[in-house]
């Protein structure tokens, strides 16, 4: 993959190429590409004069960062305690079956990414599924199909 170095340069310049701004820079890079491409990370490491392994360490430390491309639809199934006791596992399994991927994976056509989260703060509505910032409460395995269709 090729990247637009001038775009990265402008992100880096915004933070005056400060080493301490690494996390903010990575956030902006992720906002640009929806994930952190390896070439972009290497470029950032070079420009900030930070060891590559350290940039890799930060990128893998935070769950908000992803080194793998994400799908256009990002489906997060809540596995928090409240959702768990109300059967979120069944909902997740149904998603996995329907999409043919496991939690953490992305479909081949790049349409869906399936992920689990631990409590999104809407326990009363559990089991909760969040699809691209849109909340769906009281999910059941049966509702999975219609959610995917709508999306």
């Amino acid at each position: 993959m090729t990247i637009d170095e001038s775009r990265l340069d402008s992100i880096i310049d915004e933070y005056n190429a400060e080493q301490g701004s690494l996390i903010s820079i990575l956030q902006d890079v992720q906002a640009e590409y929806k994930y952190l491409p390896k070439v972009a990370l290497e470029y950032v490491a070079k420009q900030l004069d930070i060891p590559r392994v350290q940039v890799f360490g930060v990128a893998t430390f935070f769950k908000a960062f992803s080194l793998k491309p994400k799908g256009r639809q990002q489906i997060h199934v809540c596995m928090g305690t409240a959702c768990h006791v109300r059967g979120s596992k069944k909902v997740l399994e149904e998603f996995e079956r329907k999409l043919g991927i496991e939690a953490g994976g992305t479909t081949k056509d790049g349409e869906y990414t399936l992920e689990t989260v631990n409590c999104v703060g809407a326990c009363a509505l559990g089991p909760v599924v969040v699809n691209n910032e849109e909340y769906h409460g009281q999910m059941t395995p049966i509702k999975v199909e219609s959610l995917l269709k709508k999306a």
């Binding site: 392994v53 940039v55 890799f56 360490g57 893998t60 935070f62 769950k63």
Partner: peptide, 14 residues
Amino acid sequence: GYAGRGTDRYITTP
């Protein structure tokens, strides 16, 4: 260096 976090932390190359 390190990669990952918590129980998933491990030593690795870039």
